[in-house]
Every structure is written in C-alpha cells, then in structure tokens.
Design a protein around this nucleic acid. Structure first.
Lengths: 342, 342
DNA sequence: TTGGATTATGTTACCGCTAACAGCCGAAGT
DNA sequence: ACTTCGGCTGTTAGCGGTAACATAATCCAA
C-alpha cells in the first residue's frame, strides 16, 4: 500500500480507486456496484470488499449524466407546518420506497413566484417525475412542467385544468357537501372562519362550494372572519369569539381547517356554550390531533395518504398502459363527529 | 427555423440549442446564464431571449460534474410529523436562502439503518454540506460523514461526541433544570410520561437529567408510562389517566413532549382536577399549539429556529476563520406557564 | 503608430460514470 | 476440429456542462 507522492488521503474516491484496489476495470466495478450485467462471484466479492474498505461512495452526478437517468422525484408543496403535507409525503415515500425512486421536497410558502423558482431548480436536476400541489401555477411554471418530458402529477385538487395527471378531491364539492349536511341538520345562521391567504385556492374553492349550496337552500353566510399567521388554535378562539360577538344569533361555524376549528371548539366548551345544540361546528381535514379533543369535531378527511400513494404510483409507472393525463378523483368522507346535531 | 428530419421537439434542450439559436458559442451562453465573466450587453440579451424563447432549463447534473460544485445541503431528520423539525427546517431555509445553497431533506423515521441509507444516498450527490439530527449514528454513518470532506453539522443535541460541528441544547441539562424547578415549587410525587421509541435519544437524555436531579433531592420517579404511535394528544390523555389511576398520590407529571402534555392537561381540566394545585404538569418543546390551550402548559423551548439558523450558517461558511469542529450550545428557557405552582 | 491592457468570445480538455460494443475464454454441439 | 454460444471482462465514446487557457477585437496612452 505505497502512497504516491502528493497523495491526498481525503481526496474523494472514484471508481478508478476501487478499480485499482481490486485489480479489475472500472467498468466491472461499476457493474458490481449496480448489480447489473454478469460478474463472477469471485470478482464481485473482491470488488465489494475493496469498495467497503476504502469507504467508496459512488458519484451519482456522474452516473446520472452518463446514464441519463435520475432516480429523483420532485415534490413541490406550499408548506410543512400544516400537518397535511407531511402526511401526503408519507404516502409518497411509502409508495416510492421499493421503486428505487426518491422524493425531493421543495417548499413554496404559498408563493407562486417561489413555486416557479422551486420548479425550475428541481427540473434542472432532471428528475424522473414531478408532484406538485395544486392546479394554480404561473404560466411559466406550467410551461416548464409541460415541456419537461416527464410525468407530472398535480395533487390535492381536481377542480381545474391539469398540466398532465392529477390526483385529489373536489374541494368545491367538499364545501357543498358540508353545507348540505349542516342545512339538513337544521342550522340556518351559518358563518365561516378561514384563512385570508390569497393563494390558498383549495380553501377558497371549499368556501365557494359551500356558499353555492347555501344559496341553493335560499341561505347566505351570516358572517365571515379571516385570519393569517399565528397559532391556528389561538386564532380559532379569537375568530369564534369575534363572530359570536358581532353576530350573536349564528348557530353554525364552518372553519376552513381543523386547527382553527379545534380552537373554536375549545373556546365554546370553556364558555359553556352547548355544542352542537346552541351552535354547531365543523372543520376540514381530519387531522389526527382531533382524536384527543374533548369532543370530536365534525370534519371531512382530505384523503391525504391516499393522494400521496396514487400520485407516486403514477410517477412510478404503475398505471401501465396509461400514457398520462389521468385524473383521479378521490371522494372524501364526511365525519359528523359530535359537533353537529343529528 | 427549419427542423432537421427526425427533429424531436420534446427532446430536452442543451446549451448547444441555445447556442445555435443565438449564434454564439456554448461557452458564452453558459457565461450568460451563470452571470460569470464578461459578456457584452448585446449578446447577453440575445442569449437570454433565446433561452427564454426555447424554454431552456440548464442541466445542473452536467454543470455540477464539470465544476465539481453542488449547491445542495443534505438535511437528515427523523420525522416530519413532529412539528419540531419543520421549524428547524425553516431556520435552515431562511439562512440558506441568500447563499445560493439549497436544502434537501431526508427522513429516517428514527431508524439508524434508514439513516445510514439516507446519508449514503445524499453523499452520493456530493452536497456542499450535511446537517444531521442527533449525535447517535451507526459506525458506518459516522465514517461516511467524516470521510466526505464537507462540513457536517449535527443538530439538536450536544451531549455526546460530534463528527465535526454541532449546534443544539443539552437535553440532560434541560431535564435537570425542569426537575429542579418542579422540586422548588414543592412537588414531591413526580411521574414521567414519554415516548417508548428506543431511538429517541434526546427524550432519553432529558429523562436521565431529570432523574439525576430528582436523585440529588433524594427523590425517585413515583411512576412512569410510555407510548408509541397514535395521536399524541389522545395518548397524553390515556397515559395521564393510567398513571393517576395506578399511583393516585402523584402530584406532578413530566411529559417528554408538549403534545402529550397538552392531552394530559385537557384530561385533567375535564376531570375537574386542580391544575397546578392538586397536580402540576410540564412538557417540552414550546410548540405554538400551546398558545390556544385553556391554560398554558409549562415547557422549555428547544431553540429550534435558532438551531436551524446556526447550523446553516456553519455550512454556508459564515463563521470565518473556524475550520470546523465548532460546538454551539444554545440555552433553552423555562416557560413556567400556568401548570406549575409558584 | 504601436503595444499592452482590457474586453469579448472561442477552443480544448476534462469531470466520473455508463451504454454499447468488442474481445476472450472454455464448454458444448456437430 | 470448427463453429457456436454464453459468461465474463475490457475498450471506447460520450453524457452536458465548465475551468483554464487561447484568441480576436477594441481602446487608449505614449
């Protein structure tokens, strides 16, 4: 083991190092490390031994360039602090696990410009597919995705035009269904509490569907309240208080997500308000958190795990025969919980 | 604009395409797109125009291979469903934002083997640095990190031996401090509720520090209860009930995280138990969620944002002059809230 | 006018790996 | 003995960029 002069022990290793250490060509080493092509058992062992001894870590950059194959899937989501996206991610990871593909996450903070940048950055790594939350993107983003020549799956929402494939639920329909259930339960003075973010299109669509169903029943929203930022639980309390103060005869509160709904529920219970008698409550998402609440909040699950799974399956090409352009609509189920009369 | 026969409009574009479209060499195009070297304003515009018109997206794989530079920072964390790691990530992203570096996240699910794989995969993309949660890794993981020749920052914890740099708090000390505060407040029959995961080293260290301080005061844990999986809020309720049933004279419950603490708090309030008179409660982390609870749970923040920031700064080389091997200990502050007598 | 600096652009040689193909060998078929 | 073939290994030529250097064009001072 003589070291040539100027030998740098910390220089990063290449196939050549392993090749020299094991006395075979670089190509053979490459074959061994990728389990591709025929290699005799003896050489295989010798190579693996040498690679392990040296601590060789292959350079995927070079590999990807040479093979024109990248085992990455870009996943673009608006936020991680939402609990809903981590769950989608779990679905994606689980499904991708045994396909050799690996998800790479990018976060946009609900900014279309940021999304454009993230998509550009990701595409520049030439991933095998892209999963992007939502259907609303800048023209440039859509163009890039369409041009990329890889499978694109837009998730969460199906109310709109997809670039390629889409997996999600109809938020408009979800809002409508919830409104129908609320009306059927006899509530009439219905108010809404939700996020103010101009780019939360899915919340917007739920509200649209909701109001649509109200209108069909000859009703309009009795009141509405918006927020942005801060602790959702706390905001839920504050908004609930504000609405009930301003419009005391409200008998139902529809929240755009479960966290603020939970805040509202806690506030009502503290104030001794009869839920769901005097006032009914409902949220959206079906977050696990709700299980620990004093009363189960009415909600509608967004099929997050399933969305992640299906999206990943499309990318992994498990939907044989389909070229692309699939749209999969999942149907969320209404969970009435204990905060809606029946 | 004649297309040669066999022209594939969806073939992914290369520098050459832009070069031909704008009538300059590939090198000049490369310079324009990277803003490097002198290029006349006229050509610059022409090139940018051509690139935009074609929808060219550079191939970072090729670029990285040629320049031996990759603008990625690997971030390896155990979980995303914890709320604490997303916050660390925010700190990292914010700081990396204007350095041209980009975080890439890998999740290990608290499995050392999975962590080893994730680290291997990440290193094979030759990132500019790695941020890894925790100090406990397999020997192979440590060896790979040490050999990689890039800055490595282990975060969250500093009770142990770091491969290179470390940023975090002493969980042992945090546990000790909490115990001291509890004892000082006059509680004596103290129980613990926490995660059972064998690989949550930080929770383990907190408990060790906690028991150590108890011992110093001549006390031992009155009871203990562990859980794994499921809704943390719900588990908090269940464990609290179980402990109080089994050991009715317990007068303080120390939870290994805020979520189960919150569950315990809700349960106690529902049962009409006097908190913090009859029984005191404390958690760990300082999660935003707590702001919306009926009473503020005593806790200790883990400096998550700050940890992310500092780690990113080290990677970005903002700590001039220091070669590596820095250990930054942050000091969490005790937030007594309303669930501990005073 | 000239030469040296300055600016703008092109040329060449890789980066570390893999696809594709070429060679070699011994066993089996005829 | 001569092909044939499959198993195993090596050779060659890139993948799409960029570093480093070479060259051409422009400009101003002496």
């Amino acid at each position: 083991m003589t070291k040539p002069p100027g030998f740098d022990p910390r220089r990063t290793l290449t196939l050549r190092d392993v090749s020299e250490a094991s006395g075979v060509s670089e190509m053979t080493v490459s074959r061994v490390l990728r389990n591709r092509g025929d290699v005799s058992e003896a050489t295989r062992e010798r190579v693996l031994e040498a690679a392990r001894a040296l601590g060789y870590v292959p350079n995927k950059i070079a590999g990807a360039l040479a093979s024109q194959r990248v085992n990455l899937v870009g996943v673009v989501i608006p936020s991680l602090s939402n609990m809903v996206f981590p769950e989608v991610l779990t679905g994606i990871s689980d499904t991708l696990e045994d396909t050799g593909l690996q998800p790479v996450v990018g976060v946009t903070n609900y900014s279309p410009e940021r999304e454009e940048t993230v998509i550009y950055e990701m595409l520049s790594w030439r991933p095998s597919g892209m999963i992007v939350a939502g259907l609303e993107h800048t023209d440039a983003s859509r163009a890039m995705l369409a041009q990329a020549g890889i499978p694109i799956v837009e998730i969460m929402d199906i109310d709109g035009q997809a670039v390629d494939s889409a997996v999600g639920i109809s938020h408009r329909r979800a809002g409508r269904q919830m409104a129908e259930a609320i009306i059927a339960a006899g509530y009439r003075r219905i108010a809404f509490c939700g996020t103010m973010m101009p780019y939360d299109h899915r919340a917007r669509k739920r509200l649209e569907g909701f109001e649509e169903a109200l209108a069909k029943a000859g009703l309009t929203l009795a009141d509405r309240e918006f927020y942005s930022g801060g602790s959702a639980l706390l905001k839920g309390r504050e908004m609930t208080e504000a609405v009930l103060k301003r419009t005391p005869d409200v008998d139902f509160l529809y929240y755009s997500n479960d966290m603020i709904g939970a805040g509202g529920l806690l506030w009502c219970l503290e104030k001794g308000i009869d839920v769901p008698g005097r006032i009914g409550l409902a949220g959206f998402n079906g977050v696990e958190l709700l299980d620990g609440l004093p009363r189960r909040l009415a909600t509608m699950d967004a099929c997050r795990l399933e969305i992640g799974r299906r999206a990943a399956e499309i990318i992994a090409g498990k939907h044989d025969g389909v070229i692309g352009g699939e749209v999969i609509e999942l149907t969320p189920t209404l969970q009435p919980g204990d905060t809606i009369r029946r």
